[in-house]
Write a protein that binds this DNA or RNA. Structure first.
Length: 423
RNA sequence: GUGGGCGUAGCUCAGCUGGUAGAGCACCGGGUUGUGGUCCCGGCGGUCGCGGGUUCGAGUCCCGUCGCUCACCCCA
């Protein structure tokens, strides 16, 4: 093997691609039916877009971006997530003039330079939905509910939905100050990584694997206990909408989002058996986002789902195959008279035009090899054309499902096949 | 960025204490089989990740390197 894709990339060969396609198609159908419209935004943006919106302190921006200068000396980065580009497009094209909220979805790749492992690649695929332009808690709940409906529709079971409110940045700062005080008081017993997080990202301290630190953090102040009245009211509304829908969830007071721009509602859907990277989908509200970009105050909510992880989970559950129906074609044309090839290949086009899936040998296979191939591709009908058929301007049609064979004039073949398939 | 495990045919793997490369599946061909997704035979296919070293001789030992993988970290 001399050629290999770069680390952290993967090829989607046809079998897995069919699963991915089915997963995304299901999302498209569900979100489409709810009124979300598809859009697409660039794979790369000016680096500043991500720097301003993700927060300079976040790992994603500081060391995980694929950044470079283009030939015009512009600072460019491959998108590490999809939300920023969508919000940028919303502002750039004045979508605030349309009925609010503007609800859109997209599916595409994003890029993050980190060490690959199961469920974490450098190029990964996300399905992303955003609803921009409304504060209404009903929007948050709708996104969560659609997401759960989608994941359940593709057969996932054992999902865990966690929700939390992380309030507004201003309120969060007050809480973080309290949390820092608490950590300082217990500094002697905390692990180094927790102390490091105390400075960089205190909310993340709760995620530590260190047992002693976990015990201490169990008694630390929780953001849920000191939400501003506005945030508490919004959060209560979201929960009420979810309850009314029968969506079961758990309030997780230590749940945080990775990017800085999030406010109020935050949620994550996990499939624990996936391993260390068990978050299959995560989202939240980002009411301050547009202002950071220099736009007018614009609320928004959205989520991103990791398609790679979802496909992994489906494969683990052994239900990936069920999503992709059996692959079979209607007709295989077995040609054992070389002179007949051009005419019969032309006939393939006519069959296909008539809505019949049809194939013939493309690799110089022997008579027997062609038959075996017909079986392999699951052809229901095999049309044979040998020297004597060709001389008589007929073909032999064998119906593998019903049995039996019949000579059919070449001129009548398309009609004959269509009758068999429809009948 | 930090650790652990692993790297032999397209895939899954075997190769004992170093002696010069194998199986199954897949693919192609032939035979057989009640119109035939069986069975049998044959063929194709490998610089044993790469580079050094030890040795008469290394897939097998040592060092380095690259890659994969799991975990940390981070997050979808």
């Amino acid at each position: 093997m001399t050629l290999k894709g770069p680390p952290g990339t993967q090829d989607w060969l046809p079998e897995r691609m069919a699963i991915r396609r089915a997963v995304v198609d299901r999302a498209t159908a569900i979100f489409g039916a709810a009124g979300y419209a598809e859009l697409a935004v660039p794979l790369f943006e000016e680096t500043g877009l991500f720097e301003r919106t993700s927060g300079e302190s976040s790992e994603v921006v500081t060391k995980e971006m694929y950044s470079f200068r283009d030939r015009g000396d512009r600072a460019i980065s491959l998108r590490p997530e999809l939300t920023a580009g969508i919000v940028r497009a919303y502002l750039q094209h004045g979508l605030h003039k349309r009925p609010q909220p503007v609800r859109v979805f997209t599916c595409g790749t994003a890029y993050r330079y980190n060490r690959p492992q199961r469920g974490r690649l450098r190029e990964f695929v996300q399905f992303d939905a955003e609803a921009i332009g409304s504060h209404d808690a009903a929007v948050d709940a709708e996104l969560i509910a659609l997401q759960m409906a989608w994941l359940e529709a593709i057969g996932m079971t054992g999902l865990e939905l966690e929700v939390n409110s992380i309030d507004t940045p201003a309120a969060r700062r007050l809480y973080v100050a309290d949390l820092r005080d608490y950590l300082d008081r217990h500094a002697a017993e905390l692990s180094d990584d927790v102390l490091r997080l105390r400075d960089t990202n205190p909310l993340r301290a709760f995620d530590t694997k260190h047992e002693r630190s976990q015990a201490i953090l169990a008694d630390a102040p929780k953001i849920t206990d000191r939400l501003s009245t506005e945030a508490a009211a919004h959060f209560a509304e979201v929960r009420a909408f979810l309850d009314a829908r029968g969506v079961s969830f758990r309030v997780e007071p230590t749940l945080v989002r990775g990017l800085d721009y999030y406010t109020h509602t935050a949620w994550e859907i996990k499939w624990p058996a996936l391993g260390a990277q068990s978050t299959v989908s995560g989202g939240g509200r980002y009411d301050g986002f547009a202002e950071v970009l220099g736009g007018p105050p614009t609320p928004g909510v959205g989520f991103a789902a990791g398609i790679d992880r979802i496909v992994l989970a489906l494969e683990d559950q052994g239900i990936a195959g069920a999503l992709v129906g059996p692959v079979a074609i209607d007709v295989f044309v077995q040609i054992t008279e070389p002179a007949a090839r051009p005419a019969l290949h032309a006939l393939l086009d006519r069959l296909r035009l008539a809505g019949v899936s049809a194939e013939a040998d493309l690799a110089g296979r022997s008579d027997k090899g062609q038959w075996k191939h017909a079986e392999r591709v699951g052809a229901r009908i095999v049309v044979q054309c040998g020297p004597s058929d060709w001389a008589a301007a007929t073909v032999t049609v064998r119906d593998r499902e019903r049995g039996g064979s019949e000579a059919v004039a070449l001129t009548r073949l398309v009609d004959d096949i269509v009758e068999r398939i429809r009948g």
